[in-house]
Design a binder for these strands. Structure first.
Length: 291
DNA sequence: ATTTGGTGTTGTG
DNA sequence: CACAACACCAAAT
């Protein structure tokens, strides 16, 4: 648990806060019907109640209660409502001119098809490193053209598995651990204070045509907003392909930056997440406080 | 509430 | 080339 990432402001925690926080979230969502009190939760995970309240609020900018509110189906439905089929273009304009910015991270991306990188990019070198993040240990992977992968692990014990998951996606690439190289990306990505235009974050998307189209649509979803799989399907011109869209979203290699966590089912249910539903909830709750 | 049938794309053999 | 798997969805039990 080395905490080499000291973030510049206090909205983001260091180190193992996420462990505590994810425990709370898991508990909160599992027996939310019982409306467990803060005391009860604190007792269950063996922490002092006021300390817990403080940790959680520092992490999310939201009290546990408000957090729970922010990830209910009702709330999700409300957000979906002004999704407005015609296009998110309206909110696009809005996002650029107002503080509720779109493209929160100011990403520029380029796409690379599997064929392209197989022929042209054999021996493509990918450098990687783990860093602390608000959502646990984050694995960042970069090429000389930009960020190509972002994955998560609950703790250090889970790191090898995350690494395997990611390296398996690009057999043939050469992998080198290089945390010095990945560190600046980690800082930039997880500290909203760094989300400014200027030097946009360079991302390289490696995937099939269809996947790229889906991922590009995901980038259009503003911070704090949600989108259904079927709506995404409509936007890429394959209105009946919502299921295929779901699969593509699930294979997004640059999670969080390409906001796959903002895609949910039409009912408002969160449905699924490659790195665990609890983490998806955590991201949405965290974002809810930052709109 | 649960089941069922219709989906588009991808990975496997 | 076929076939199963999938972070879905709507309509019919």
């Amino acid at each position: 648990m080395n905490m080499e990432i000291r973030l510049t402001n206090d909205i983001t925690p260091v180190g193992n806060d996420y462990r505590t926080v994810s425990d709370v979230i898991a508990l909160l969502t599992r027996d939310y019907q019982a409306q467990p009190s803060l005391d009860a939760i604190a007792r269950k995970i063996g922490q002092d109640a006021t300390e817990l309240q403080k940790t959680f609020t520092r992490w999310a900018g939201l009290s546990p209660k408000a957090f729970l509110q922010a990830v209910t189906i009702d709330h999700a439905k409300r957000l979906l409502k002004d999704e407005k089929l015609p296009l998110l273009e309206a909110s696009y304009e809005l996002g650029l001119s107002s503080p509720g910015r779109l493209h929160d991270l100011f990403v520029t991306h380029e796409a690379m098809s599997p064929g392209e990188w197989k022929t042209g990019g054999v021996g493509l070198e990918i450098r990687h490193g783990f860093h602390d993040s608000p959502f646990g240990r984050a694995l960042l992977m970069i090429t000389d053209r930009g960020l190509c992968g972002l994955a998560f692990a609950d703790d250090e014990a889970a790191e090898p598995e995350a690494l395997r998951d990611m390296t398996g996606r690009w057999p043939g690439a050469r992998f080198v651990e290089d945390r010095e190289a990945t560190r600046p990306y980690a800082v930039r990505i997880f500290d909203p204070a760094c989300w400014k235009p200027g030097e946009p974050l360079r991302v390289v998307l490696i995937g099939t045509d269809f996947q790229i189209r889906v991922w590009e649509q995901l980038l259009e979803i503003p911070l704090g907003r949600l989108c259904t799989y079927s709506h995404l399907a409509g936007r890429i011109g394959a209105p009946k392909a919502s299921r295929a869209v779901g699969a593509a979203v699930g294979r997004n290699p640059v999670s969080f930056v390409v906001p796959c966590h903002r895609a949910i089912g039409k009912s408002g249910a969160l449905t699924g997440y490659h790195w665990g539903l609890t983490r998806k909830r955590a991201m949405l709750g965290w974002e809810a406080a930052k709109v």
